[in-house]
């Protein structure tokens, strides 16, 4: 029990600290690396509450794919991060104001959230007992059975994002010579080479 508690505080502290470092680090590459650390410790937190499937997905998808993608983008795009921060001080007060208002609202809402007897009684899909259902099974049941409609709709949304990205950025540049493997393979010796008789002391 004590080990579990220790692990929790370790992971939680690392998550929060690395989260703070993500937005304060000067070097954007360091930010992304701290993001990876935050993902890892969040995965640890998931493991502690028995959600091993989500923990693994977090590592595989977020660390393995998303964060690496971020890293590429940060390294390849020439963004002047110092310039991006110039407006920060000017806009910070109004941002903080909006944030505080939202926070107060949340606190008020939380205070008036009395026991939530109605809310728990209403839960559309109650959590199945952890002892009888594996969490991969439970997630699969939710996504592919209960929410099949939403799953398909989300697929369409992603499709639109893809069409949009291609339609807005793909340009056919004229005069670019592309490699066409089929043409290369179809080349006959006669097309590209010819045998000439070279006269002595002459030349071509």
């Amino acid at each position: 029990m004590i080990i579990q508690a220790l692990a929790f505080y370790l992971f939680a502290a690392v998550t929060v600290l690395s989260g703070a470092m993500v937005i304060t680090a000067r070097n954007p590459v360091h930010s992304v690396l701290f993001l990876v650390l935050a993902f890892f410790s969040a995965a640890g937190l998931f493991l502690l509450i028995g959600a091993e499937f989500v923990a693994m997905i977090l590592v595989i998808v977020y660390v393995g794919a998303v964060a690496v993608l971020f890293l590429f983008v940060v390294m390849m795009l020439d963004i002047d991060f110092a310039e991006l921060r110039t407006g920060l001080l000017r806009y910070a007060p109004i941002g903080a104001l909006v944030g505080i208002v939202l926070l107060i609202e949340l606190v008020v809402a939380l205070v008036s959230w009395k026991g939530a007897s109605e809310a728990t009684a209403n839960l559309a899909v109650p959590t199945p007992p952890a002892s009888t259902t594996q969490n991969a099974v439970a997630i699969g049941e939710l996504i592919y059975t209960h929410y099949a409609y939403l799953f398909q709709a989300a697929g369409l949304v992603l499709l639109v994002a893809m069409i949009g990205a291609i339609a807005l950025t793909l340009r056919q540049r004229p005069g670019v010579r592309r490699q066409k493997i089929a043409n290369q393979n179809a080349v006959q010796p006669a097309d590209v080479a010819e045998v000439r008789k070279v006269a002595s002391r002459g030349g071509i």
Binding site: A109, A116, E118, A119, T120, A121, N122, L123, A124
Partner: peptide, 13 residues
């Protein structure tokens, strides 16, 4: 917020 206070996302409920 609505979900938190009603426990459901269905309009009917």
């Amino acid at each position: 917020l609505v979900y938190g206070f009603t426990g459901t996302t269905s309009f009917t409920q």
